[in-house]
Every structure is written in structure tokens, then in C-alpha cells.
Amino acid sequence: MSKTTKTINEVRHAIENRRTVKKFKKDPVPTEQIIDLLDTAVWAPNHKLREPWRFVLFNGKGRKKLAEAIEAEMGEDNKFSASVQQVPAILLVVLEEDPRQAIWDEDFAAVSAMVQNFMLAAWSENIGTFWVTKPFLYAPKFRKPLGIKAGEKIIGMIYMGYPDVIPSAKERTPAKEKLTLFE
């Protein structure tokens, strides 16, 4: 097997075997390792190299700041503020929005590709991830204390840590069943 074939097979293997992890061990994920993974993730395709993303990381004691922002919006009696303090690290991925629809669409796609890159890179280092979106991500009471400005969209929260449980694969619909082909 050639080196190129082996690399292609490794990429396909990573894509097909990555899982969404919701149960993590308590072990911390080093900040430097997360930054290194982000440095890999930003190689995502993005039109004219606009790099329309930024990140807010909550690691270690910093998770309390995220919990407090959730409580500011939802009150102290909610399941999310307690749960984020149990996840080893949480990354907010923020899109710098452009008012031009075509550019907004391109940038959203680029940020989504970057998130997938991050999740695959993390998986390659035995770090599980879970891409989370919640209504409170839009709330000013949540956004303001975290420095999320008008004109920015939180694409999601990426929970990450070393997997305690790796879920089994769920069947996917073969692409052929969703393909319209003109030959």
C-alpha cells in the first residue's frame, strides 16, 4: 500500500469512526493541546482566507464563568449551568457575521468546516467532542458577560474531554439514496 493510499484510508477511517461523545472522564484537557488542535482546524477552506472565526475557551476554573453566563439568562435553577462545570473543556465558536448574504453563507460554511476539522483532529488525539447549540446562545444576558458582540453569531459550544463512554455507530443513509445524477 502506498503512503498516499494509507493517508487516504486514515482520513476516511477518522471520518467514519469519529463519534459524538457526551460522557467524559474528569481528566482536564490541556489548554496548549486545544490551541494546537485549533491551529490544525483553521486549515479549513474559507473563501479569500477571511478566517471568519474566533474562539472563547472555558477550561478548568474558567468553566464557572460560562455557568454564570448561563445562569444570567436562565436563572440559577437550570441543568445547563451545572452540566458545563462537569465537562472538562468547552469552546465557543464565534462567527464574525457579514451583512452580505452570499458572504455570510460562505463564512458560515467555512466555520462549520473548521469545527469538523477540530472535532476530527481532537478525535485523532483521543479527545471526544459534542457540538451543542442551545437557545440561550442568542440571549444578550448570556452573550454580554462573555464578550460576544452584536454582529457575531455563536455557531455552537464544543464540549470536549477524554471519552468515558464511546457510543456505537448509528447507521447512515447511503449517499446514493439522496443523489440526483445527471450523466
Rank of each mutant, 00 (worst) to 15 (best):
I158P: 01
W104Y: 15
P174L: 00
G151C: 07
V132A: 09
A69Q: 02
D98I: 04
S112T: 13
V56G: 07
S83M: 12
I34A: 11
L181G: 00
E152R: 01
L57P: 04
F58W: 04
S2W: 08
T31C: 09
N17F: 05
M119W: 05
A169F: 01
I90T: 15
P140L: 06
G128I: 05
K64W: 03
P88Q: 10
T31K: 14
T40S: 14
G147T: 04
K153R: 15
V11S: 05
R19G: 03
M160Y: 02
A102F: 11
A110P: 01
L92T: 02
W131A: 08
F108S: 10
A102C: 02
R19Y: 05
Q33I: 12
V111A: 04
D77T: 05
G62S: 08
E171N: 02
S2C: 12
K153A: 11
R12P: 00
V111P: 02
A102K: 13
Q101R: 13
I34G: 06
K26R: 15
N126C: 05
E177W: 00
P45S: 11
N17C: 07
A113V: 02
E68V: 06
M1H: 14
R18F: 05
T133G: 07
A41E: 10
T173K: 02
L37R: 09
N78I: 03
E32G: 12
E16D: 13
R54H: 15
R50M: 13
S2N: 15
A139Y: 09
S168V: 03
Y162S: 01
E171G: 01
E97G: 02
E97Q: 13
A67K: 02
V165Q: 08
F182M: 03
S112P: 04
A67C: 06
L120A: 11
A41R: 09
E106K: 13
A82R: 14
Q86M: 15
I155C: 12
Q116R: 12
G156H: 01
S112N: 10
L120S: 09
R19E: 06
E183P: 01
T4D: 12
D36M: 10
A69K: 01
L181V: 08
T173R: 01
G62P: 03
E97I: 06
N46C: 13
R54V: 05
E68Y: 07
L146Q: 06
I8A: 12
L95W: 04
S81Q: 01
R50I: 08
D105L: 14
P52D: 08
N9A: 09
P167Q: 06
F108H: 09
P145C: 04
E68F: 03
V94D: 05
P99N: 14
K176L: 04
N117A: 11
F24V: 07
Y138M: 09
L37T: 06
M119H: 07
L38W: 12
H47D: 07
T20K: 10
W123I: 08
Y159S: 07
L49R: 15
T40C: 14
K64Y: 09
A175H: 00
E152M: 05
T7D: 13
F130V: 09
R12F: 11
R63H: 10
R54D: 13
Q85S: 06
F182G: 01
M74F: 03
L92R: 03
V93A: 10
N17T: 15
G62L: 04
L92F: 10
A169V: 02
K61A: 15
H47S: 14
R100E: 14
K153S: 13
K176N: 02
A109Y: 04
R54T: 12
